[in-house]
Design a protein around this nucleic acid. Sequence first.
DNA 1: TCAATTTTGTAGTAAAATTACAACTTAAGT
DNA 2: ACTTAAGTTGTAATTTTACTACAAAATTGA
Lengths: 281, 281
Amino acid sequence: MNILDKITRNSELFSKSEKKVAEAILANPQTAIHSSIATLANLSGVSEPTVNRFCRRLDTKGFPDFKLHLAQSLAQGTPYVNRNVDENDGPEEYTNKIFESTMAALDIAKQSVDISTINRVVDLLTQAKKISFFGLGSSASVAHDALNKFFRFNVPVVYFEDIVMQRMSTMNSTEGDVIVLISHTGRTKSLVEIAQMARANDAIVVGITAADSPLGRESNYVLSLDVPEDTDMYMPMASRIAQLTLIDILATGFTLRRGNKFRENLKRVKESLKDSRFSLN
Amino acid sequence: MNILDKITRNSELFSKSEKKVAEAILANPQTAIHSSIATLANLSGVSEPTVNRFCRRLDTKGFPDFKLHLAQSLAQGTPYVNRNVDENDGPEEYTNKIFESTMAALDIAKQSVDISTINRVVDLLTQAKKISFFGLGSSASVAHDALNKFFRFNVPVVYFEDIVMQRMSTMNSTEGDVIVLISHTGRTKSLVEIAQMARANDAIVVGITAADSPLGRESNYVLSLDVPEDTDMYMPMASRIAQLTLIDILATGFTLRRGNKFRENLKRVKESLKDSRFSLN
DNA sequence: TCAATTTTGTAGTAAAATTACAACTTAAGT
DNA sequence: ACTTAAGTTGTAATTTTACTACAAAATTGA
């Protein structure tokens, strides 16, 4: 639907000159919608028909129709586009690009989450006897963060980044335990094995991973996040950030579900941190 | 701003035929934006110049410009605002709110970063003999993530979340070492002490923290991020996510600075991960 | 290296929007 | 009721903009 996304994502569909047009538009979409086909052709350094062909390739009726779509995208509140960092970018460029593509990734992820699964998982977490968060590599820090968040809730929660510890912990799991496994690809062998072990012990497995993956298939519940692929080398993994946001959501759902008395408790935890801090002045 | 509102409200400004145009547009705005001036004139039962005059009266440059404004009005969705989660929100509401306020936080953080400091810090990191990332609490997982990213670069990098280990490591630091300390508030006592120790050893201290804070003042370089305060209990800490994005930016700057041969190396690391994964099928 | 295919631009054409101006309408003053 | 001036609307010409057909250039594969 959103034509700006379409331009960024289907960039391989364009020919060389069409890519120039795409760049010119992405560089300054506000200018683009107020330009005539001739002006935009100039700006992109191509001929008018090329601009026209570019519009057609995006399934619009022509240039004016394209401008309409573009105007709508801009108004839609999605000013963030996933622009790739390239070799010649200076600090200003790559800083802005990374911020923007992270926001764009979150926006896409937002549209892909399944609310009812979230609700169900929050349910399970509030009733869990023990909650475990496991991940490896870059997902380990996400699991680590989850530990931090849930630890404040004063519930039994564990986190390991060591495969052996993860296995040992899982072997001792029982019915009523919830094990959250985090993996972007869902193809990390040792996590898939953990999922199998956990289910054999009647523990519930929640996968924060791709739905159609070995880990996804071994999980009782899958929270999948569509995140634009990190196509090139420079692109940082936006999936981590989407995963963290998902953790925030689960933690928030958890707090809301627990009700008022529980939140009093949370305040106390926050207070207790003050001792390890310098005062405000 | 919104042109649809303007049409409805300022109806007394229009002449008789212009009102016909207004009606025709309000009756079916979706059709209007896809019509030519001739079609719309027909639909309204007036002449083409009348339609044009109608557009001008609404302070647009002409018919095409008017269509753009109209298209934007129609597409106008909710922009990213920092809406707080409240007690009565269901899963759908709090999920959307958290995604949106995270994006809003990134947007604000983006505007507050100091590019020249980033550039300077990237410089230091590429020349460092050893890089350390330390954080506590929720900043520990950010440091953990930084370790992951920089570890791939095959540079000497360490990370500890244990205060004692952090101190020991810092005591052995020397000139040429860079120590990155992460703390949202910048008031964590033990990190401030580490900053002092590090500087006493001629190591360079980079603080990812508030500029005007004890830790900020003890750092050689401060990368500060303005992030909306988590005003209430339910609000998750968006600062973590902004910090992670900053780590991404530093890592990207690092890769870009190191040049081509270095990136070949990165590819090899990516390849080597494949063995621990299931194949794509 | 040559033929086939794709991509791109030039020049001409068609369509759309705008302008200038004339005709009509309306309302006020005589 | 007639005249006139201001305002409104439409016709026709003009200008601008977008599109099409075709030819040149570039790319690809044999």
